[in-house]
Write a protein that binds this DNA or RNA. Structure first.
Length: 433
RNA sequence: GGUGAGGUGGCCGAGCGGCUGAAGGCGCUCCCCUGCUAAGGGAGUAUAGGGUUUAUAGCCCUAUCGAGGGUUCGAAUCCCUCCCUCACCGCCA
């Protein structure tokens, strides 16, 4: 959510900045609503003031033992007027809120102008795209030859499309990747390992921006009755981790707060039918190790560089070729003001695919969440800045390892950093029989 | 799931329907006093929104005592619903 000031003073400039990312702000509606809001709010508060003053004098008169009847008569119609004014104000504020809640964050100046992912800017690359002297298989075929380690048919029986059952060495490698990432971030990068709920309430989803706009991308769990709180499965650990700061006021000295968690993520992938239907790339359920930072505003741009670097470390230690991309205005997420994507090389697709997305949300989420901190000696608390990034998506990392470490005989070499997590196994081989 | 207790400011803790944005204490900040320490005296110490304003300064107003509704001229205080916390019992990974 943007500061309301953006819609009061200099709304034209705000509209222009938003237009860069392809969002058209309804300036006329907003201005009209804002005029009415101001008028109604002043009227409502004036009426409230009047009622309070009069009620107080009634109390005083009564205490003096005077006749109250005439005073009561005077107040008679006030209540009704107030009622009407309050209701009108409420509905105008609801309308305003509805518009403002749907407005995305403003990209920072250095974000390149562009319409979609084709206009993202490559910032750097690591390694060379892997070359093979044989015809590279994709991870689905590799796994099939490794004792059917990725069993999509079984998952379809149990649940449906876009789920997977992992087995044997591949399941173990999946777990090893998770452990490796968590240990790296908590031991080397200073993140506090955290365990969080996989179901969250709607306040949390609103706080990080999934609601009200993107509810269709989530899996919802109904309460037993209408009155009960509805919960949703988390689409990313960003939601519980970042919402830990909701309605909090931190001391300046407590910042930065750096958190990491491993969770499954659940996404309905509404609107993605037909894309990446084969394999692990796009699933309804996948695991991810998430990085979240809560920082002072002046630190958030550097924090984004740091956080992205932490995610890159995972790829570098796994020795997976990747490139780092600065997203253009048109490809950025709703709440982000700057985003880097990390794209890992997938030989079978002969291309780079997203494996991590690291964003600085600025104060956009913090404003929705009322996540604040107080500078030493300062009276007023300030909104802090939130950042998050995948460090990394575990399923896609598994895909990358299988495809980049495959050998001509169908076996897959286990990257060295994973071996301690796999009982020293150095290579995954198809066992006959 | 059952029974009971309870949700008030950074924390603890009062609070007859009106003079309570909220006693008292702790903590914190500033000042005074005391040679240091300890003790003591005084003042201050919530958040959000709006109006005014060059102003994130002042000033004025409004809202907030778990949330939402209701009764009333007036609700922290009365009524209803929900949420949450704690204790004991039951069940259970």
């Amino acid at each position: 959510m943007l500061d309301a000031k953006h819609f009061r003073e200099g709304i034209e400039e705000t509209a222009a900045l938003l237009q860069r990312r392809g969002f058209t702000l309804d300036v006329a509606s907003l201005q009209a609503l804002e005029v009415r809001r101001k008028e109604l709010q002043v009227r409502t508060e004036t009426l409230q003031n009047e009622r309070n003053t009069r009620s107080k004098s009634i109390g005083q008169a009564k205490a003096r033992g005077e006749d109250i009847e005439p005073l009561l008569a005077e107040v008679g119609s006030l209540g009704d007027q107030l009622e009407v004014a309050k209701n009108e104000l409420q509905s105008v504020q609801n309308e305003l809120q509805a518009i403002i809640a749907g407005v995305p964050n403003i990209p920072v100046a250095e974000v390149p102008l562009g319409a979609d992912e084709t206009e993202n800017v490559e910032v750097s690359t690591f390694g060379e795209p892997t070359q093979f002297e044989f015809i590279a298989k994709d991870h689905v075929d590799i796994a099939e030859d490794l004792n059917n380690g990725l069993d999509f048919a079984m998952a379809a029986k149990l649940t449906g499309a876009r789920f997977v059952v992992m087995k044997g060495g591949i399941a173990r490698m999946h777990r090893a990747l998770t452990q490796f990432m968590l240990d790296l971030h908590s031991e080397q990068h200073g993140y506090a390992e955290t365990y969080v709920p996989y179901l969250v309430n709607h306040d949390s989803l609103h706080g990080t921006g999934q609601l009200p706009k993107f509810g269709k991308d989530l899996f919802h769990v109904d309460g037993e009755s209408q009155d009960q709180v509805a919960l949703s499965l988390i689409p990313t650990a960003e939601v519980p981790l970042t919402n830990m700061a909701r309605d909090e006021i931190f001391d300046e000295a407590e910042l930065p707060i750096k958190l990491t968690a491993h969770t499954p993520c659940f996404r309905s992938e509404a609107g993605s039918h037909g894309r990446d239907t084969r394999g692990l790339i796009r699933q309804h359920q996948f695991d991810k190790v998430e990085l979240v930072q809560l920082v002072k505003p002046e630190d958030s741009m550097q924090a984004l560089e740091d956080l992205t670097g932490h995610a890159e470390q995972v790829l570098q230690l796994l020795n997976l070729p990747y490139r780092k991309v600065l997203l253009c205005t048109g490809d950025m997420g709703f709440g982000a003001c700057k985003t880097y994507d990390l794209e890992v090389w997938l030989p079978a697709q002969n291309t780079y695919r997203e494996i991590s997305s690291c964003s600085n949300m600025g104060d956009f989420q913090a404003r929705r969440m009322q996540a604040r901190f107080r500078r030493k000696g300062a009276k007023k608390p300030e909104l802090l800045h939130t950042l998050n990034g995948s460090g990394l998506a575990v399923g896609r990392t598994l895909v990358a390892v299988l495809e980049n470490y495959q050998q001509a005989d169908g076996s897959v070499v286990v990257p060295e950093v994973l071996r301690p997590y796999m009982g020293g196994v150095e290579v995954l081989t198809p066992s006959k029989g």
